[in-house]
């Protein structure tokens, strides 16, 4: 995209350029895989370092991890309920940590240092495929949770409180993953684009507040995705009546 007659060395706006890996008939977006592998590696390393030598009085990384665990446990327990939250804590926690680390990693790590033949590295969650995959996983988890715990009585959910709600509930099954994935994708891409445009126009200082706002909203988006996933799973289990 060339808006100006000259090019600044700091930023280019790239949307829809990908590093394609071809496997059979499939075109994979390579840069998404690369950046998510790097971020997953960093997250795994942090967790392994933090849990290798457990102290009774947590210090340093272990303290951070215990704080995160407490936070995620409260989140899952509030939405899913005392009875079943433990089974779903790993899923919710993984979603939250992956999205959070992806969003912040995409914003904080200077990806421009790594040269790719095409496309550029960035937050994996700024690619629609990542978010759609996660949203469909949430849908699967929701059906699995409901069907395994309730059997066919799971479908009572659709006619509660009145059977008039049936069509809306069925449509909701499709809009849930749609809105989950678009919300995350749109927010992260919008942050990246807003920062990109500002850096393009004024490379110094001016983009900083927008970058901070981006960090804030991307943390909130991770929280929202995890909360909604937990809420949907809790809804599928519908314990509360």
């Amino acid at each position: 995209m060339a808006l100006l007659p000259f090019t600044l060395p700091f930023a280019e706006l790239e949307v829809g350029n990908h590093l394609y890996w071809q496997i059979g008939n499939l075109n994979l977006h390579g840069q998404v895989f690369l950046s998510s592998w790097i971020l997953i590696g960093a997250l795994l390393a942090l967790v392994l370092v933090g849990t290798r030598k457990l102290d009774r009085d947590p210090r340093g990384v272990q303290n951070l991890l215990e704080f995160l665990w407490d936070y995620l446990r409260d989140l899952a327990r509030d939405q899913i309920g005392e009875k079943y939250y433990r089974e779903w804590l790993p899923f919710i926690g993984t979603l939250f940590l992956f999205i959070f680390v992806s969003n912040w990693g995409g914003a904080l790590i200077p990806w421009k240092v790594f040269e790719l033949p095409e496309g550029e590295l960035g937050a994996p969650t700024a690619d629609i495929n990542t978010t759609v995959a996660m949203a469909l996983l949430v849908s699967l988890a929701y059906f699995y949770a409901g069907l395994s715990k309730k059997g066919l009585r799971f479908f009572e959910l659709y006619v509660e409180p009145t059977p008039i709600m049936l069509p809306f509930k069925i449509i909701e099954e499709f809009t849930k993953p749609l809105s989950l994935s678009f919300r995350l994708f749109g927010n992260i891409l919008a942050d990246e684009l807003a920062v990109g445009v500002l850096v393009y126009l004024v490379p110094l200082i001016v983009p900083l507040p927008v970058m901070l706002l981006g960090l804030f909203t991307s943390a909130i988006q991770a929280l929202i995705f995890a909360t909604l996933a937990a809420f949907y799973i809790g809804e599928g289990l519908h314990e509360h009546h």
Partner: peptide
Amino acid sequence: AFMESLTIYGLV
């Protein structure tokens, strides 16, 4: 953030 996401749909 929920309301924000409605605008984001427009942005998408």
